[in-house]
Write a protein that binds this DNA or RNA. Structure first.
Lengths: 193, 193
DNA sequence: AATAACCGTTGATAAATATCAACGGTTTCC
DNA sequence: GGAAACCGTTGATATTTATCAACGGTTATT
C-alpha cells in the first residue's frame, strides 16, 4: 500500500529515502478506504487531513445558492486530495471532497505532514515540487479561463489531461470548465467534423 | 530600501533574522527601478528573476491571437512579481510582466532564492507562507470564476481586494476578471442603485 | 498651449452560453 | 428482472456577455 507513495517520492526528489524514513512514513500515513460517494471532507468542516490517492478517483466541489455543484478539482492516482485553505487557516471548508470511485487513500494530518517534511529531506523536496506544480497548473487554468471561450478551454483541457476525460463523466468535466453539460455536449458535437 | 523586505519577513516568520542574515539578504537582493510601462519580463524570455515590490504597481498578462491582453495577475507593494512556471521549468514565458506605475523592486534569481531559503530559516518560512497564500488565493479565484456570473465575481473581488480597485484602472480590473471593460462598466452602473 | 493618448460610458447589435424540458440508452440497485 | 438513477443529447428559448462604434472628459507629451 505505501509502496505507491515511496515511488511517488522517488520520482519527485533527488535525495534518498532511507529504511528509517520509510518506516516513519508507514507509521504516519494511515490507509483509508472510501466507498464511491463517501465524503472525505464536508463543507463547513475543518479539513485537517490530506490524502494521497493510491487507487481511485475523487472530486472537490462547492455548492452554490441554487444547489448547483461546481467542480473545483478532480483527483486520481498519485494526486493529493485536500483543502489547503481550510487546513492552513483552520477555517471551515467551503468545499466538499468525496470519492467518485471506490478509493484507497493514505491519510495524514497537516501537522504530521509538516513534521515529516522536517524529518525527511526527500519528503520535503517532494512536497515542494508538488506545491510548485499545483501552483503552476492553477495559474494556467486561470489564464485559460479568463482568456479563452468554452470551446478552446475544452480543447486545451482534453489535450493536457486526457486521463481525466476518460475517467470522469462529461457533466463533471463541464462543471470543472465552468460551463453546463449541454454546452459541452454541443461543443463536442461541433468538434467531431 | 531592504527594510521593507525585512519587515515583510518578520511579519511572515516566527524565526528571527540575525544581523548576518540581513547582511546576506542585502548582498543578494539587487535594487532595481522600473519606469512605468517598462518590462520586467517579456513573453518568450525565460524569467529567471523574481522581484519583491517595495513601491509601485505591476501587472502580468498574456496576449492572445487577436492581440488582446489578458491580465493574469496584479501586483502592488509587498507582493512578488515573477513567472513561477518559467523560472521553475526553464521554459520561455507565456506572459509579460511590466510596471504599471514607476516601481522599486528588489530582485533575485531563482537560484539565489533557493540558496537563501536554505541558509536563512526565517526566509524559508516566509516563502512557504507566501506560496501557501498564493495557492489559496488562486484556488479561490478559480472557484469564483467557474461558479459565478460576472457581476458576483466583481462584487467578491471588490470586497476582497479594495486596494486593487483604487490602484488600477477599470479596464485592467475587467480583464483580470475575464470580462470586457464595457461589461464591467455596465455592472457598476447597475450596482449603484 | 496644442495634440495625442488614455479612460470610462453608452447605444445598437451579434454571438456565446444558460435554462428548461423531453427522450432514449445505460447502469445500478433491490 | 424491473424500477430507479444516471448520462448524454437535442430543440426551443432566454439571458448574459462580447463586439463595434462613437463621445466627452481627463491626463500625458511635446
Amino acid at each position: 500500500m505505501h509502496e505507491a507513495l515511496f515511488t511517488y517520492i522517488h520520482q519527485h526528489a533527488t535525495l534518498p529515502l532511507t529504511a528509517e524514513h520509510k518506516a516513519l512514513i508507514e507509521a504516519t500515513f494511515q490507509p483509508k478506504r472510501l466507498r464511491k460517494k463517501q465524503y472525505f471532507l464536508q463543507e463547513g468542516d475543518i479539513g485537517k487531513q490530506a490524502g494521497f490517492i493510491v487507487k481511485g478517483a475523487m472530486r472537490q466541489y462547492s455548492v452554490d445558492d441554487k444547489g448547483v455543484e461546481h467542480i473545483v478539482n478532480l483527483f486520481i492516482e498519485n494526486w493529493w486530495a485536500s483543502d489547503r485553505e481550510s487546513a492552513t487557516m483552520h477555517t471551515p471548508s467551503r468545499y466538499n471532497i468525496d470519492a467518485w470511485e471506490d478509493t484507497d487513500l493514505l491519510v495524514v494530518t497537516r501537522a504530521e505532514m509538516l513534521e515529516l517534511m522536517e524529518k525527511i529531506p526527500a519528503f520535503g523536496q517532494t512536497t515542494r515540487v508538488m506545491d510548485e506544480r499545483n501552483f503552476i497548473a492553477s495559474q494556467r487554468r486561470l489564464n485559460s479561463t479568463i482568456s479563452n471561450a468554452a470551446e478552446k478551454r475544452y480543447e486545451e483541457f482534453a489535450e493536457n489531461h486526457p486521463q481525466f476525460i476518460e475517467r470522469f463523466p462529461q457533466h463533471l468535466i463541464a462543471s470543472f470548465l465552468g460551463i453546463t453539460k449541454e454546452t459541452l455536449s454541443r461543443i463536442r458535437k461541433q468538434a467531431m467534423r
